[in-house]
Amino acid sequence: MNLFYSVREAFSGFTKARISMVITIFTVSFFLFILSIVAILSLNMNRLVTMLNANHDVQLFLANTLTSVEIDQLRSDILAMDDVVQVDYISKEKAAEEFKKEFGDDIFAVLEENPLPASFIIKMNEKSDMKTNLSDFAGELERRPEVDEVVLHQGALQILVKFAHVSRVVLYLLFTLVFLGSLFMISNTIRLIIFARQQIIATMKLVGATDAFIRRPFLIEGLLQGFIGGVITMLMIYVLVKLFLLQWPGLLLVPRELYWIVLFAGVSFGFSASLFAIRRFL
């Protein structure tokens, strides 16, 4: 095995077919950039959903006729349900106080009796998946006779979360499509480069070069192209994220690992696309 030869051939391939190299590196960067954007969006969508899930709660209004025993029983039933972490009881009196705080008027000044029902504020844990089972959760509670009404506080946010769910699926699909597409494109570009060097490959075979020996410089070349493509994408993402955060501070979270993943993806892209492309010629 002559690794030095392979590395030298790989670098000389770089200088001999400059335009093809630039095209391949550009293709790698372009697809990596799209994949990174998709990943960043997906990541931040998850973050938003997690944030919303952490904050959301459900208010449950109780029927007026309940005794304190029934209220306690209902409270422990709810606490036993999945994803429920806390159940706070808001009595009719407390509800009246909060009404006063909110509206500035004492409800008893207007009405003779307190019309506000007692309620529970139910806090869900972070894992509770608002997008799918919160309405089921509310429906289940609403069917109970002790319950008058269930209000999901973040109706508007829920729509957002639902949207997040849909867009996450779209993003994953897009990610897969772009990934496969880019592998195909890069492989084809590299195939063109190899095609131009068919004569070299044929001659090498005639003088007794093994397939592995012939393959090695092309793989190293693919690896280098992927590496350079990865570095360019890293820089592009870094600048773009910086500019975005200057405009909208704190709205985007890009973990440092993403940059390494981009680089690794570039190298893997280049290597596997070369491997895929050269198989045709050996």
């Binding site: 001999k16 004569q199 075979k205 003088v207 007794g208 093994t210």
Partner: peptide
């Protein structure tokens, strides 16, 4: 490839590599 290393082959069209 190992068999071919026992042989030297010369062609009518030379088959030289023009890039080196």
């Amino acid at each position: 490839p190992y068999l071919r290393r026992k042989l030297g082959i010369v062609f009518q069209d030379f088959k030289l590599l023009n890039d080196r």
